[in-house]
Design a protein around this nucleic acid. Sequence first.
RNA 1: GCUCGGGUGGUGGAAUUGGUAGACACGUUGGACUUAAAAUCCAAUGAGCAGUAAUGUUCGUGCGGGUUCAAGUCCCGCCCCGAGUACCA
Length: 896
Amino acid sequence: MSYNFLEIEKKWQNYWLENKVFKANDNSHKPKYYVLDMFPYPSGTGLHVGHPLGYIASDIISRFKRNKGFNVLHPMGFDSFGLPAEQYAVKTGQHPKTTTEKNIVRFKDQLDNLGLSFDWDREIKTSDSNYYKWTQWIFLKLYNSYYDEKLNKAQPIEKLKIPTNISQEKMDEFIDSKRLAYVDVIDVNWCEELGTVLANEEVIGGLSERGGFPVVKKPMRQWVMRITDYADRLLEDLDDLEWPESIKLSQKNWIGKSEGAQIKFEVNKKNFVEVFTTRPDTIYGATYLVLAPEHPLIPIITSTTNKKEIDQYIHQTSMKSDLERQESEKSKTGVFTGAYALNPMSKKKMPIWISDYVLYSYGTGAIMAVPAHDERDYEFAKKFNLEITRVIEGGEDVDCYTGDGKIINSENYNGLDNQEFKIIVVDFLEKQKKGEKKVNYKLRDWIFTRQRYWGEPIPILYDGEKKKDLEYEDLPLKLPEVESYLPTKDGSSPLARNKNWVSVQKDGKEYLRETNTMPQWAGSCWYFLRFLDPLNDNEFANKDIIKYWMPVDLYIGGAEHAVLHLLYARFWHKVLFDLSLVNTSEPFKKLVNQGMILGNSAFIHRIKNTNDFISFDLIKGHETQKIHVDISMVDEKNNLDIKKLQKSNPEFEDVNFVYEKSFIVSRDIEKMSKSRYNVVSPDEICKKYGADTLRLYEMFLGPIDQSKPWNTSGITGVFSFLNKFWNLFHTNGKFHVNDEKPNDQILKSYHKVVKKVNSDIENFSFNTSVSAFMICINELSSLGCKSKDILANLCILLSPFAPHICEELWSLLGNKNSISYEKFPMHDEKYLIESMIEYPVSFNGKLRFKINLSASLKQNEVEDIIKNHQSTEKYLNGNSIKKIIFVPKKIINVVC
RNA sequence: GCUCGGGUGGUGGAAUUGGUAGACACGUUGGACUUAAAAUCCAAUGAGCAGUAAUGUUCGUGCGGGUUCAAGUCCCGCCCCGAGUACCA
């Protein structure tokens, strides 16, 4: 008989909600702890079993910290602007607001069913105008700030020193060129299928991150954020963060700092080609230059004889999409300009070429090619038969050597170490005014506008080309109603359809509104600040409250946001910090990535060009096509319920199923999603086993940061553990405990689990804590423990993992308060040492114990325990102890 | 290609960081209860060999070497899988 989890769980969920048990206090004498989840996008499918993984982990930490005496803030909200709601709106004509709100209700309900300890009084939605008012306000802060190179921080635009004696127009231009949010006509990533521009971070291998549609480069007028000014600080401050190394590394790579030199190559008296290189030491091996096809110098220096060929080449490459450009990676293409430049060191004449393997967007858009020591240059030189000169000794067995070595073929400098020579070259060129030390970044400015409906409107007005920012009183600038949410192919925003909204009178003047919207990342750049003070009408959050709670002590979410959300949020936060609006330079102190829970998709196979579906066991020799089927149509042994399938989908009524005994499907592990028909909802599990079981099971599945396929087969083990726990303190269905003092064996078992759980939670090793509980309950069962004290402490210990059952047992013990703020139990070292010395490690006549001393016991106390323990006697074999040697923290040698 | 992770029973995964390898759970097998099934409980369960048995013994953490009294863990050289990234000069 299982305990009545349905009744118990509902009861406690209501109790927590009604009594606001998890309400965080903004001024408390307790130390604070801010636990944050990456808030979800409320999709139409609701939660699947993968979502709660991170939420359960953060909830365990929240509850643990509460029991440890911290004032815990654990809020939740919704990142409710975004593409899917809009795409759904385009399809059905329903307002995205309506569907989003419906989805949020469903999400909240599902979250509450899991017993998560959120402070719902602080709920926020990014699409709520009370929220995006402040997103717009921060946007204007960025618009009205510039980066002061000397102070190395952002400053209000009023402090900017503007050159005098220039026209008003020039002045405006100058100011605009310094703003952190600025407008520029630049080559952007245009995705026609999505009808919008995308940030560099949202393009992966020439395809859109969302949907995988082709992206082309196209010059457009866009709002851009000057994130590049922060490149160095975003890089350096990573060192102090407790983040997974892999995430730090991704951010480092994305920022892509490289140190080298910028060198001028003279073409004629008037013109020179400037290049960036990290290898100035190879300058004697630079035998030609290459310009990107977009390079502005090309029309100036090209000889008339080659003009036709060059124009054709430039035209060709401009037609290529990013994807096509990458595909042609293997074979290099290019044309000769007919012009030459002078190598400032070797004084040799170098031909200038044009090729698309040089990117205009990186460095100076031009390179000095050193074919002997750079693989791309080598390939190009081979193809076009250009000179290859070795200038570094080493790698004789390869055609192209990229390592270090002694300098050769470099006139007076031969024999030097190449790293040494690097410095000499830069010094020499600096004196000649032909070059300088230079740092380059891969990071580009953040393209900020989207040509979409369902996002924050940008609070800017236009009077022709002249911009005017809205004032505080004008915020929020609410999203207008439009006839159609459909994006346009020409790149204008759906907001432009509402003509009444677009034209506006202000101070007796006619203006037009900006019609683009902000990207989805905008709302999530600062939401963790709004949670601190969500109802504040006068500021985005009160300064004292910010000072109390920030930074976020623990941030839990998926690793897929490594360079998107996490980089943008850090950038905004640093701007707010520079403007003294927040008190920390980094928002998230510790970051933990939960792994993804994958789905176990099922497939049926159609024989190509027929209407026959063949069972997977008979598939050999057939060419087939895989089609997803809903996993609810399939049993554990991979048998397909054909009737059920045909009933739910009439498409399959007229097809022929070929099989022997039963129709077998094939399986594959994939990301969980509606389109793959492999979604498992937590609701069914909660109904069948309860939320406590689901919580424990998800934690038991494996290490929190690991991705793993969902598989329900082991859930009975966790479920029966909870029942054992319940039944241990029940006799014939009645609650049954006693006041007896627990014996040593019980205490040993109890202290073992206390220690394990304490250290495991700190290390995010939740799977092993669950195991430790199971062992403990098994041991206590066989020892027949019914001790009141033990139960009380076990309830507190287990409550972060399985809060409902613990609250119930806690109240059965006669307690009136929620368990949520009870003191977390601590272990007694004495009992642990005894169990550790039961298994000594011995060799060479010495008896050794491996004991992890955690300092609460003194050395002589440990000695006494060892001397008096029965198992010591057994291992000593009649010898007596002469000496006990303590090696710090690790092994104890007993010499006999 | 480069950069990170990671390879342990039939499965998910433990192993106090160099000290009993396989905790815990699933699965499987056998047993108890039951008219029967479900549920529950008990026992066995890395592989091999010997033994009626208790037990003994050999092999065993992707492969090949090495360091050490002792290696899943450290070092060297390979193989495979996963993730990220991609002409960044």
